[in-house]
Amino acid sequence: MTAEEHHEPSFYVKIWAILLVLLIVSVLGPMIGIKWITLLTAFGIALVKAYLVAVNFMHINLTPRYVVYLVTTTLVFMLLFFAGSAPDVMKEHGRNWEKPAWIATEAAYQAGELDLGHGHGGDHEAESGHHGQSEHH
């Protein structure tokens, strides 16, 4: 809040109430069981909630424009990081590499043979070849 903007406490309580309604929707959405609704209610609503907090509680809209650029720049760097790293992480084969342990684990999972009752799983399990302590479900 700056000299340019003064709100009554009721304004902030109203924003808080909206955030709580959005929270309830984000919890109920996945219960429908439709994937795109889950994604929308979980991550779409998270973006809306973050926006409401940044604008109404942090008052980022009242800071000089370069602060918005500063924050946006770091977010763009994160997207660049994701775009640069994800192809290697998310693919099991590459030009000069492959992930045999990962492929074995994925195959076992798809075939229903992966023992998810043990702590060790995913690529680590196949690479190390040992099991950790049991895991409760």
Binding site: T74, F77, M78, F81, A86, V89, T105, E106, Y109, Q110
Partner: peptide, 19 residues
């Protein structure tokens, strides 16, 4: 950058590992 790097790494692994 700290949280974004961590969560970005989590998201790409999470999508890649169905299990």
């Amino acid at each position: 950058v700290i949280f974004g790097g961590l969560l970005g790494s989590y998201i790409m692994h999470r999508i890649a590992h169905g299990e």
